[in-house]
Amino acid sequence: MPKGDGKTLAQNRKASHDYTIEETIEAGIELKGTEIKSIRRGSANLRDSYARVYQDEMYVYNMHIAPYEEGNRFNHDPLRTRKLLLKRKQIDKLFGESREKGYALIPLKLYIKNGYCKMLLGLAKGKKDYDKRHTLKAKEAKREMDRAMKGKY
C-alpha cells in the first residue's frame, strides 16, 4: 500500500501552492481520546500547522482539532502541541534536512490507516511569487487543453 493511502480526514491543500514538496514521510501522531473522536468526525485543520524537532522529539504545532461536542470536561485544547511518532533515524534525517535554509516540515494529510491516525509530512521548500504564478499558468494551460480535447470527441 503506497504512503498516504487510507481514509483522508484532513488535507492541507494550500501546501502544494505555497511550497515545493521534495520528500514525504508517514508519521504516527499521539492523540487524546476526544481528539481522535473529533478527527474521525472530520473536525481537523492543517492549514497553518508545521512540524519541528524539540529535545530530540518531533512535534506538530498549530494543528487545530475542534473540541468534541460530547466530551464535556475531558475535552482538549484545540491548538495544543502534539507529538509525532517517528523512529530516531527518521527524526535525525528530517532534522538535518530541515535545518537547511528555506526548508520546512509541513503536514500534508491526516488519515486513518489500519485503525491508527497517521500524518503525511512533507519536506518542503517555500516557493517565490513568480514560481506560484508559473504553476498557476501551467495548470490553467492544462485545463484549457483538456477542455479543448473534450470538445473534439
Rank of each mutant, 00 (worst) to 15 (best):
M1Y: 14
K3A: 14
G4L: 13
T8A: 15
L9Y: 12
N12A: 08
N12C: 11
S16W: 10
S16E: 09
D18M: 12
Y19G: 01
Y19M: 07
T20A: 14
E22Y: 02
E23W: 10
A27W: 00
A27I: 02
G28I: 06
I29H: 01
L31S: 00
K32D: 05
G33T: 12
G33C: 11
T34R: 10
K37H: 11
R40K: 14
R41F: 11
G42D: 08
N45R: 08
N45C: 07
N45P: 03
L46I: 03
R47Q: 11
D48Y: 12
D48N: 15
S49K: 02
A51N: 05
V53K: 12
Y54P: 01
Y54M: 04
D56T: 02
D56Y: 08
D56E: 13
M58L: 10
Y59I: 07
V60M: 00
E70R: 04
G71Y: 00
R73I: 09
H76N: 05
H76Q: 02
D77I: 14
D77Y: 07
L79G: 04
R80M: 02
K83A: 02
L84F: 02
L86E: 04
K87R: 09
K87L: 08
R88Q: 14
R88K: 15
I91S: 09
L94I: 08
S98L: 07
S98C: 11
R99V: 13
R99E: 14
K101Y: 08
G102H: 03
G102F: 07
G102R: 08
Y103D: 02
A104E: 15
A104M: 13
L105S: 04
L108K: 06
L108G: 00
L108Q: 04
K109F: 04
L110G: 04
L110T: 02
L110K: 01
K113P: 00
N114W: 10
C117R: 02
K118P: 00
L120G: 03
L121C: 03
G122V: 06
G122L: 06
L123Q: 02
K125A: 03
K127T: 03
K127S: 03
K128D: 13
D129R: 12
D129S: 08
D129G: 10
Y130I: 04
K132A: 10
R133L: 10
R133A: 15
H134F: 11
L136S: 13
A138E: 11
A138N: 11
A141C: 09
A141I: 06
K142L: 08
R143K: 13
D146A: 14
R147A: 13
A148K: 14
A148Q: 11
M149N: 11
K150V: 04
K150G: 02
K152Y: 05
Y153I: 09
